[in-house]
Design a protein around this nucleic acid. Sequence first.
DNA 1: ACAAATAGAAAGTGACGCTATCGATAGTGT
DNA 2: ACACTATCGATAGCGTCACTTTCTATTTGT
Lengths: 218, 218
Amino acid sequence: MKISEVSRLTGVPPTTVKYYLREGLVHAGERVERNQTAYDDTHVQRVRLVRALIETGGLSIAAAKEVLATLDADDSSLADTFDVACRAISVGGAAAGASDAGARERIATLAAAHGWRTTPENPGFAVAAQVLDAFAATGYEPSRGFLDAYASAASVIARADLEALTTRTRPDLVAELMVVGTVLGDALIAGLRRLAQEHETTQFFPVPTGLDDQEEAK
Amino acid sequence: MKISEVSRLTGVPPTTVKYYLREGLVHAGERVERNQTAYDDTHVQRVRLVRALIETGGLSIAAAKEVLATLDADDSSLADTFDVACRAISVGGAAAGASDAGARERIATLAAAHGWRTTPENPGFAVAAQVLDAFAATGYEPSRGFLDAYASAASVIARADLEALTTRTRPDLVAELMVVGTVLGDALIAGLRRLAQEHETTQFFPVPTGLDDQEEAK
DNA sequence: ACAAATAGAAAGTGACGCTATCGATAGTGT
DNA sequence: ACACTATCGATAGCGTCACTTTCTATTTGT
């Protein structure tokens, strides 16, 4: 299979495929001639995986490269793979920002209340704590009930994520699904949340006419 | 209050504050002299809001500008505000990508099953459908149970979001919380999901020693 | 009086994710 | 055999983004 074929099957320009090859996001093909390299289905699949991570998951090239590297290293445990995957996403959203110690403490308490056994290095702590800081900066203090609802939802999602992993038997495919699921799951819950929010908004604040407050007051 | 004071209180460099003023993300101060402009608490608060949207929420300058514009226009209804807010986020993650019609249909069925009354224009449809496409591209077909779990979680979150809005009385603050909550909520659930995932991972795949497979097999 | 701060505008910076161009080479159709 | 297209690797360039630097003209604080 030539590079043009890979391009055609994935919808990614050949030049971009070459770029991914150069960056090490896709494994090299088999060099046949000086200007001919043979690619196969694994390359097509890999390009699709890269696009899913970057386009839908919002990962940077560097983050995707790191994640894919652990996928390729089949001597790494599932825990390692998950660790790298969840770090890769956090970089894009919120990573280095040193959050308030109080916020971290509050998240730790929340996690404990929900029976989560976690390590302090989990980037989720930093991300969640930074969100609390951001809420505080804008003058809103999330109630315990609010956080509990989010935590319960997170539990439900995480169980579904792990349940999904059990549908695969080959270890390398389990690892791949963990990475893809971790990355794409964020986008999925975000999308569904928009839908549920619209529903709840119309429930809480019905606007029959679709007009503004003056109109409603009639 | 001088610009240096705003900078000090927010931790944002004065040049960046000037940049935000130029871009219209922050309202102009009161011009006192040719090289003197008076700012107040509202400016400080606004800069903090901008930082929360950009840094923690991951919004682009353009998206933040758009969102803030509807916040400032107090003649817009809550539904409008929500609409703009959720569109602004979607741009960053997944917007223009024309998704498979089948995937959209599947999301619509899911939404209906969960009793959500939504409009087809809701960007959540496009985002969720694109995620299904991305899963499919990587060779994983999410089960109905998987999607149901995510949808249930989304319902729980959306109810908490709306519940939070009722804690505020001033209409402009309700709108602000809706925007901030929509943007920051995505990050919050992402962070908590990481924590729950780590817990569930150790439940499903216990790794007593924390070492690799060879070590476990001993 | 004079260093420091401020205003506004314009140009520059560095990261990022490609994209274009190059010369050399090889396969393809006629 | 011959034109033509495709491919290779490498290098350089491009467009966007979020600032940041630099500039001059002022004005403040000491």
